[in-house]
């Protein structure tokens, strides 16, 4: 046993922490009264949606964090946080279908065919389900190299999720823009900056040579 196995020990704690938003909301909802505000369905929809996005961004932050620290432990939390994003996404869907739309299928079908922000959100949830289903070790083995390719879809899911949020806001874009900026940073951190810098410095060094050569050839 190495000293680094504190991650295995910390995992249940992180698990419980991830359940906290749900637990607090349930307590507020079941406690009755006005804890969930004047429009509780809206509150539940908004909250479950926000936690889906937050978990998604946290998941995407783990790889850059691991690289920055030079340690692998953040990666070991990645699957759990990803599955929590999926979990809150499913709660979001459930609140929408059952509490908001009262399982009124004609209306739901209309939403899913006519409202861009709902279509985008739904596509994100479907893609998320695929990633959740294939998140097991068995599927990792079965899909081999394709597993990694498949799970890159998470970037698309996050973009769709932020777009879903941006599109439903009426005038004040500040909150969804904060999520957009964080996502932008997390995606930018994944770009191969090092390789580009090397390529750029190399080309900068060789540029005068090229210029000289082309100048001489034109003469």
């Amino acid at each position: 046993m190495t000293g680094r196995d504190w991650v295995a020990w910390a995992k249940p704690g992180v698990f419980l922490l991830c359940l906290l938003p749900l637990a607090l909301t349930l307590a507020q909802g079941l406690g009755g009264g006005l804890a969930l505000g004047a429009n509780p369905v809206e509150t539940l929809l908004h909250r479950s949606g926000l936690w889906t996005l937050r978990m998604l961004l946290l998941t995407l932050a783990l790889t850059p964090l691991s690289r920055a620290l030079g340690r692998p432990w953040p990666i070991r939390l990645r699957r759990m946080l990803g599955l929590f994003a999926f979990f809150y996404g499913m709660l979001h869907l459930l609140v929408y279908l059952w509490l908001d739309r009262a399982l009124d299928w004609p209306v739901i079908v209309e939403d899913l065919t006519e409202r861009p922000y709902i279509i985008v959100g739904m596509v994100a949830l479907v893609l998320m389900s695929v990633l959740a289903l294939t998140s097991t070790r068995g599927w990792q083995r079965r899909l081999r190299r394709n597993w990694k390719r498949l799970h890159r879809v998470v970037y698309l899911i996050a973009v769709l999720g932020v777009l879903h949020f941006l599109w439903l806001v009426k005038a004040d874009l500040r909150e969804p823009l904060i999520y957009a900026v964080i996502l932008g940073v997390l995606l930018a951190l994944r770009l191969p900056w090092g390789r580009w810098r090397r390529a750029w410095t190399q080309s900068a060094q060789s540029a005068p040579a090229v210029a000289r050569r082309s100048a001489s050839s034109s003469r």
């Binding site: 909802g29 429009n39 809206e42 409202r115």
Partner: peptide, 22 residues
């Protein structure tokens, strides 16, 4: 006439709680 982003066919009455129908 729907709002371009959502339906105006139904609405939620404030004060109905979280199981109230639209």
């Amino acid at each position: 006439v729907d709002h371009p982003r959502w339906s105006q066919k139904s609405h939620r009455m404030i004060g109905g709680g979280w199981l109230a129908k639209r």
